[in-house]
């Protein structure tokens, strides 16, 4: 039996601003299996990104239990959480969040550079592979400002997948992209899933959400629906994504 990737029980998140208490998440129960392609949808301010932050150990829950790969993360210190983020989780953000002073290659190499279990050769090989997977090898020496939005997001995806994490977290990955570039990015995610990656994606876009094989809907900080579709609709391939992208922009 496969080990459960994520197990959340009664997760709560409360924000305090001055004297106001805001319940961003309430009583969240969530289990994610390896290989899941999960989309999280809901209206603005419903707590989607907060949930993603907690899953990605970017933030801590105010209450409840959270286990990752069978280990409770509730009581982990910053150092341990950092280590897990570095090795087990890959992030894709809506605004790409590439470091502007670093080249494409340096951005991709950044999370790998802190992995002690990999030699330099392995790190370079992984980064090269990730660049190839998103068809950005020819831009490896460019800076983010020299790339289009779609290209920047492809680099961000390469950075997220380079370390072969257990889980890829994507927060509105197509939110800042036009339709064609968005399609390219979604196909990349489909391909990653097809190759065995576990993906958890927050999105506003129903069409993107439909590509996942499981979709949860959040309203006012609570999961109101959790639907599974055996195959999802993400049928694209990486090669198709590359071809399409080349048609959009070089």
């Amino acid at each position: 039996m496969k080990q459960v990737l994520i197990e959340m029980q009664s997760i709560e998140k409360i924000f305090y601003a001055d004297d106001v208490e805001t319940h961003a998440l309430s009583n969240i129960h969530l289990r994610i299996q390896p290989g899941d392609y999960l989309s999280i949808t809901g209206p603005s301010g419903c707590g989607k990104s907060t949930l993603l932050s907690i899953i990605g150990l970017l933030d801590s829950a105010s209450g409840g239990d959270y286990s990752l790969l069978g280990e409770s993360v509730n009581n982990l210190d910053q150092k341990q959480r950092t280590k897990i983020r570095n090795k087990e989780i890959g992030f894709i953000f809506q605004s790409f969040n590439l470091i502007s002073d670093m080249t494409v290659w340096e951005n991709i190499l950044l999370p790998l550079s802190y992995r002690r279990d990999l030699s330099n050769t392995q790190k370079n090989a992984l980064a090269t592979q990730a660049l190839q997977d998103v068809s950005m090898t020819h831009r490896k020496k460019h800076y983010p400002a020299q790339l289009s939005g779609g290209q920047q997001q492809r680099v961000a995806i390469a950075r997220a997948i380079a370390g072969k994490p257990s889980l890829i977290l994507a927060d509105e990955p197509t939110g800042n992209l036009d339709t064609k570039n968005a399609e390219v990015v979604m196909r990349l995610l489909d391909e990653l899933h097809h190759n065995g990656a576990s993906i958890c994606m927050v999105t506003h876009d129903p069409r993107s959400a439909q590509r996942a094989n499981r979709s949860i809907h959040i309203i006012d900080g609570q999961i109101v629906s959790d639907e599974t579709s055996p195959l999802g609709k993400g049928m694209g391939t990486l090669s198709a994504a590359r071809r399409d992208h080349c048609e959009v922009k070089g």
């Binding site: 990605g56 970017l58 910053q78 150092k79 950092t82 280590k83 897990i84 983020r85 570095n86 090795k87 989780i89 992030f91 953000f93 969040n97 590439l98 470091i99 950044l110 999370p111 802190y114 950075r159």
Partner: peptide
């Protein structure tokens, strides 16, 4: 710094 930390760069 947030990005770096999100990517697992130690403090």
């Amino acid at each position: 710094i947030g990005i770096r930390r999100a990517l697992g760069v130690p403090d």
